[in-house]
Computed example of a mutant assay.
Amino acid sequence: MSYPFQSTGTPLWDPALRVGEVYLGQAHSVADVLGVPSGLTPLRNGTCDLDPETFAAFVEHLLRFHNKGRHQSLSRMLHGVLVVSLVLMGRAGCPPPPPGGEVRDALLAEASALEPTMPR
């Protein structure tokens, strides 16, 4: 069983059920802390809809929050959500985040390496 993520009917990611549920839960928790919507809406049919515009804004907020790097443990917890989110952002056709230095470049490289391992 899986937990597909889609945007306007286009498949973006089809992870195993628990993987999808964990990512969605983490993304919603982070969005709550940031005070912004995630752009991810779970649907009754067992899929998750991604609104590209709202999701891109969420990822940009998350990236800025992550880059503040004031607390090492928090940065580590946010890291996985951020890398998966960057892959989904690219697949949804969103422009990449604005330039932000070495940390941004490292995260984008990590997302690029992860992308082929995330089934559609």
Rank of each mutant, 00 (worst) to 15 (best):
residue 75 S to E: 12
residue 26 Q to I: 14
residue 55 F to V: 07
residue 95 P to Q: 13
residue 78 L to C: 08
residue 73 S to W: 09
residue 4 P to L: 09
residue 2 S to G: 04
residue 113 A to V: 11
residue 2 S to E: 08
residue 98 P to M: 05
residue 117 T to I: 07
residue 14 D to T: 05
residue 105 D to I: 03
residue 34 L to K: 06
residue 56 A to W: 01
residue 114 L to I: 04
residue 43 L to P: 00
residue 70 R to D: 10
residue 3 Y to D: 02
residue 69 G to Q: 14
residue 114 L to V: 04
residue 82 L to F: 10
residue 110 E to A: 07
residue 17 L to T: 03
residue 12 L to R: 00
residue 78 L to R: 06
residue 70 R to A: 08
residue 49 D to I: 00
residue 83 V to L: 13
residue 95 P to Y: 02
residue 40 L to R: 00
residue 48 C to Q: 07
residue 59 V to Q: 09
residue 25 G to I: 11
residue 68 K to L: 15
residue 79 H to N: 10
residue 93 G to R: 14
residue 48 C to I: 14
residue 55 F to Y: 09
residue 50 L to I: 15
residue 59 V to S: 03
residue 14 D to E: 06
residue 22 V to I: 14
residue 24 L to I: 11
residue 25 G to S: 12
residue 120 R to E: 04
residue 36 V to F: 00
residue 37 P to A: 06
residue 7 S to A: 15
residue 53 E to I: 13
residue 31 A to D: 03
residue 13 W to G: 02
residue 116 P to L: 04
residue 35 G to E: 06
residue 109 A to S: 10
residue 62 L to Y: 00
residue 76 R to Q: 10
residue 95 P to M: 12
residue 24 L to W: 11
residue 81 V to S: 07
residue 58 F to V: 05
residue 119 P to H: 07
residue 50 L to M: 12
residue 52 P to M: 08
residue 86 L to N: 07
residue 49 D to M: 09
residue 43 L to Q: 12
residue 107 L to N: 01
residue 57 A to N: 06
residue 56 A to V: 08
residue 6 Q to F: 10
residue 85 S to N: 12
residue 108 L to K: 01
residue 28 H to D: 08
residue 79 H to T: 12
residue 86 L to G: 05
residue 86 L to R: 10
residue 77 M to G: 06
residue 110 E to W: 01
residue 44 R to E: 09
residue 51 D to P: 05
residue 6 Q to T: 13
residue 62 L to S: 02
residue 66 H to M: 09
residue 104 R to T: 06
residue 49 D to P: 00
residue 11 P to A: 05
residue 108 L to W: 01
residue 106 A to F: 15
residue 3 Y to A: 09
residue 87 V to H: 03
residue 76 R to N: 10
residue 76 R to V: 07
residue 25 G to D: 06
residue 13 W to D: 01
residue 3 Y to C: 08
residue 52 P to A: 08
residue 80 G to K: 12
residue 53 E to R: 14
residue 94 C to H: 02
residue 81 V to W: 00
residue 51 D to R: 14
residue 72 Q to M: 09
residue 110 E to M: 06
residue 12 L to N: 00
residue 60 E to C: 06
residue 31 A to K: 02
residue 33 V to N: 07
residue 65 F to V: 11
residue 61 H to Q: 11
residue 110 E to P: 00
residue 114 L to A: 04
residue 35 G to H: 07
residue 106 A to Y: 10
residue 111 A to E: 02
residue 19 V to W: 00
residue 44 R to V: 12
residue 10 T to P: 00
residue 46 G to A: 11
residue 31 A to R: 01
residue 28 H to N: 11
residue 63 L to R: 14
residue 94 C to F: 03
residue 94 C to D: 02
residue 4 P to W: 11
residue 44 R to L: 14
residue 37 P to T: 12
residue 77 M to F: 15
residue 28 H to R: 15
residue 5 F to M: 07
